[in-house]
Design a protein around this nucleic acid. Structure first.
Lengths: 247, 247
DNA sequence: CTGCGCGATGCAAGATACGCATAGTCATTG
DNA sequence: CAATGACTATGCGTATCTTGCATCGCGCAG
């Protein structure tokens, strides 16, 4: 492992939160100012950070240029996209696609219900493992060993009074999800928001992703939400089959 | 400048093109396999690359997580967005937003004309300096010194038989654009595609970006394209004013 | 004027990155 | 079935490159 590189990548994460000044960055890394400056020089040369007029630094254009390339390189995404659009059209609600990447569930695509509501995108964000539709949709269908280690690696933080914060409660919920073939997030992550999700399997047979339909409780009651399940499963099964799954 | 970091960032660009194997990467950098492996280790630890089952590497989830954060951090983008949507709605054509970032014009947002046509996004891509609407829209309104050095730093490659490949021809076109207040890309970058664009100014008074309306020649003739200009200028002026510009 | 933070550069010291060698795994090939 | 080739992983000595410090210049705020 390379110390220099490790430090530089920490900078990217740090600067990603908000624009930072040299002093902050040097302190954060625990290195001399000149060292931090050298890193920023190199990062800037490649376009990964950009210097603002007030001498603070933010992420640069190379970051989103490569970010989009990264997204485009994901086969699952292009396969799932048409199914997501169809699902979005029939339900009229927001559809998410989350994929398991190195121990985290990451949102890799989204179809917006109403374009005027909010354009804040979750793409690229990490879905909390125990209280989001996509995560539970994946978790429930993972082999036991992998599932346990994944759950063990995360804090079961409480976000609402519906959040499942004990391993037992979560496991029970996952067992139920496994039986019926879909998972439900019942306002566990955000008050007033619930969703249903179902797993997507790859050609090798293992679960690799999940798709979810998200809706506000105020507009869509539980019964209506569950009525989306057949369309949801059509979308996920269609995607799985295109990926070579024979289930 | 840091050699280690420089090499590692080269890897990201290289891997961004397509998944690469260790051997390729080591050869590309001109270093020993073990060195390349150490880099990849560190990059993977941070999620910037991901290892595929066949031992090749592609960009990882940190890349697009940070990519989206980078986009969100751009104030111009959120200010321009509503204007772009309005412009897209009134013209029915694709709207792009390009911004000047460290000597390159980069696409930072886009409103799609017809969602079913193609979802290939140019966001994050670099707009060739001499033959795209957004670039010429910016270039034309840049101070002379900056404009010249920017043009001088790029090859004026020919993409179609309309591409302006001499500095004189380009400067003449830019002078004309500056006079009338908008620039035109007349199939200079891609045959069958033309567009109009106008500059966006910041509170400090300088041009920082440009917005363009793009359309296929087959559907929209030149006259119709030019009829979009008032709406386009309304959008760019509105954005400029919100950025504090007093022109 | 003075202090503060940042940018840039030179230099000495030593931490660390580098190349090489080795060993093990796996898939492909003869 | 042996052999080949590509990759992962680790250890080690050496030389390189990084690091921290000092210095100077700059712009800005008090």
């Amino acid at each position: 492992m390379s110390q220099t590189l490790d430090r530089a990548l920490q900078i990217l994460d740090f600067v990603g939160e908000k624009p930072r000044r040299i002093g902050e960055i040097a302190d954060f890394l625990g290195v001399h100012h000149s060292t931090a400056l050298r890193f920023l020089h190199t990062l800037r040369k490649h376009g990964f950070v950009q210097e603002l007029p007030d001498h603070s630094y933010r992420l640069g254009s190379a970051m989103f240029r490569l970010g989009f390339k990264a997204l485009e390189g994901i086969e699952l995404r292009s396969v799932a996209r048409p199914h997501m659009e169809r699902l979005g059209a029939t339900t009229g609600e927001t559809v998410h696609l989350g994929s398991l990447e190195d121990g985290d569930v990451v949102y890799i695509d989204k179809v917006e219900a109403d374009h005027r509501v909010r354009m804040v995108s979750r793409i690229g964000a990490i879905a909390t493992i125990h209280c989001t539709g996509v995560s539970k949709g994946i978790l429930a269908f993972l082999p036991e060993a992998e599932r346990r280690s994944l759950i063990g690696a995360h804090e079961l933080t409480s976000f609402t009074d519906h959040t499942l914060t004990s391993i037992d409660a979560l496991e029970a919920d996952l067992a139920l999800s496994r039986e019926r073939g879909y998972a439900v997030d019942n306002e566990e992550n955000e008050p007033g928001i619930h969703c249903v999700s179902a797993p997507i399997f790859s050609g090798e047979g293992g679960v690799v992703a999940a798709m979810s339909v998200t809706a506000p409780v105020s507009r869509i009651d539980r019964e209506t939400l569950l009525s989306f399940v057949p369309a949801l499963r059509e979308a996920t099964n269609g995607t799985s089959h295109e990926l070579g799954w024979r289930g």
